[in-house]
Amino acid sequence: AVSDRLIGRKGVVMEAISPQNSALVKVDGETWRATSGTVLDVGEEVSVKAIEGVKLVVEKLE
């Protein structure tokens, strides 16, 4: 799938994300809905860990 190429890519949080709420991230110039197990604020850099349906699963870039 096209989205599989995004695993391992870096992105930027466009809307705050919490474990209860998905929000938008920008990866390679494209906007995607994403979820995370932690709270992520706007502007934080993230890494794509997986794809669940049409959502990216991201975590904060260390």
Rank of each mutant, 00 (worst) to 15 (best):
D41H: 15
K60F: 04
V42F: 05
T38R: 06
L40V: 06
W32M: 09
E15Q: 11
E30Q: 09
E52A: 09
V57I: 12
Q20E: 12
E30S: 04
G37N: 14
D28E: 07
V42P: 08
V25F: 00
V25H: 00
I51C: 05
V13M: 10
P19Q: 11
I51D: 02
K26I: 13
R33K: 11
G37A: 14
S22V: 12
V57W: 07
S36R: 00
I17Y: 13
A23I: 15
G11Y: 00
S47F: 15
A50M: 06
K10I: 14
E59F: 00
G29F: 02
W32K: 09
E44C: 12
A23R: 02
V58H: 00
I7V: 09
G8S: 03
G37I: 13
D4L: 07
E15K: 06
G29T: 05
E62D: 12
P19A: 12
L61Y: 09
T38V: 11
P19C: 13
L6A: 03
G53R: 01
K60Q: 06
V2L: 13
K60N: 04
A1L: 11
S22Y: 10
T31V: 14
L40Y: 03
E44L: 07
V2E: 09
A50K: 07
K26H: 08
L6P: 03
E62Y: 11
V46K: 01
E62H: 11
L56C: 01
P19S: 12
E30D: 08
S22T: 12
V25L: 00
I17Q: 14
D41T: 14
M14I: 14
A50F: 07
E15N: 05
G29V: 00
V46R: 00
A16I: 15
S22P: 10
V27E: 00
K60S: 08
I51H: 04
D41V: 15
R5F: 07
M14S: 05
L61A: 08
A50C: 08
V25N: 00
S3A: 12
A23W: 15
G37Y: 12
L61Q: 06
I17N: 14
G43Y: 04
G37Q: 13
K49G: 03
V46W: 00
Q20F: 11
S36K: 00
L56W: 00
L6W: 03
V46G: 01
L40W: 02
L56P: 02
L6Q: 03
V39G: 08
R5V: 07
S36E: 06
E15T: 08
V58A: 02
R5T: 08
Q20A: 11
K49S: 07
A23H: 07
A34D: 08
V58S: 02
L6D: 01
I7K: 04
K26G: 05
D28Q: 04
S18E: 07
V48T: 01
Q20H: 12
K55W: 15
T35D: 08
A16W: 15
G53L: 04
R33I: 15
K55L: 15
